[in-house]
Nucleic acid binder design. Structure first.
Length: 313
DNA sequence: GTCCAGGATCGGA
DNA sequence: TCCGATCATGGA
């Protein structure tokens, strides 16, 4: 454990709480029940939480978000370059949330590697810099992206929240955790339908039932090769290639995927028309094109294309 | 009224 | 293997 020098403008903390296990690049401190990342590198809250990879984070102020992660309600605030996460103690941070926010990854090095490969990605990286890929809970991510089919992001968020309110544990007054598979496996289709799931009601129940019935440990898919993990995910009803790849990228740490959503198709058929390969080859094309950061590059392009490319917003 | 949204599934060519 | 129709829902 390294001890950092105390900055002049921070007050109310015990110097004993300082720690820095991530090397000199990331300085983390526990103070007043929160975790503070000093001058956090590559962590833009809007581009991370509002880029469509997660559905349970709400913007509650300028550079301030509140989210439900597992059985916690967390606040994340950015102030003069410091990112504050709480309530959170050092142990939980190191055991879980460092991975959740992907804070062990050197995004600046990845950006350097990606820059210069492609003019559109260069623009996108410039415009939506600081986007991080979260490592979310697989079952919640799976159900959320089953809901994403032929749906829009605000409505997906509404439905995920309603499912949590109807079936999840109330962890704080008015805040509900996302339910586990055993709960949703027992849900009635008509009740799911009443929450606005539409025709996807049976996909949700079937997927939850399969997870429970076959004792599938989704977390264990992390340990499989991407293709093998994807094969398992494709076995669920309502899960096609794109949904599977979103789960792989946003919850299982698989960066060698390139989710083929409508925006990627627009980008490919428009911006990359001259290079557009037959569609099953897109992943291989972009893996080669963007290397190990392909999944991250996809999310950067997606977020940029949706919000900034055509002057929208 | 039509169109669209981080698509998947199905039947038929 | 590939193509088109269809699938709830709600906002624009």
């Amino acid at each position: 454990m390294k001890i950092c020098s105390r900055p002049a403008n921070w007050s109310d903390f015990d110097p004993q709480d300082w720690y820095n296990d991530l090397g000199d690049a990331v300085k983390v401190i526990q103070t007043q029940g929160r975790i503070l990342i000093h001058q956090a590198k590559h962590f833009d809250l809007d581009h991370t939480f509002s880029s469509g990879q997660c559905f349970r984070w709400e913007k509650v102020g300028e550079d301030q978000y509140r989210g439900i992660v597992g059985k916690r309600v967390l606040s994340v605030k950015k102030d003069r370059g410091d990112v504050e996460i709480g309530p959170l103690d050092q142990e939980s941070y190191r055991n879980f949330f460092e991975d959740y926010f992907d804070l062990g990854r050197d995004y600046e090095a990845i950006d350097r590697d990606l820059r210069g490969r492609d003019p559109y990605l260069d623009q996108a990286l410039e415009r939506v810099g600081g986007l991080r890929i979260l490592n979310q809970e697989p079952f919640e991510t799976l159900i959320s992206f089953i809901l994403s089919a032929n749906n829009n992001i605000p409505r997906i968020k509404q439905i995920v929240n309603r499912i949590s309110e109807a079936y999840g544990e109330e962890i704080l007054p008015g805040f509900y955790a996302f339910p586990g598979p055993e709960v949703l496996a027992g849900a009635r289709l008509e009740d799911l339908r009443a929450l606005g799931t539409g025709y996807r009601d049976r996909y949700i129940k079937a997927t939850a039932s399969r997870v429970v019935g076959q004792g599938i440990h989704l977390e264990a898919l992390r340990g499989l090769e991407t293709d093998k993990a994807k094969e398992v995910l494709l076995g669920f009803e309502g899960v096609g290639s794109k949904v599977a790849e979103c789960v792989l990228l946003f919850s299982l740490g698989k960066w060698d995927v390139f989710p083929e959503d409508t925006w990627v198709k627009k980008i490919v058929s428009g911006l990359y028309a001259d290079k557009a390969a037959p569609y099953p080859a897109i992943r291989f094309f972009f893996n080669d094109y963007f290397g190990e950061g392909a999944g991250y590059a996809q999310q950067v392009l997606f977020h940029w294309a949706r919000n900034y490319m055509m002057g929208v917003k």
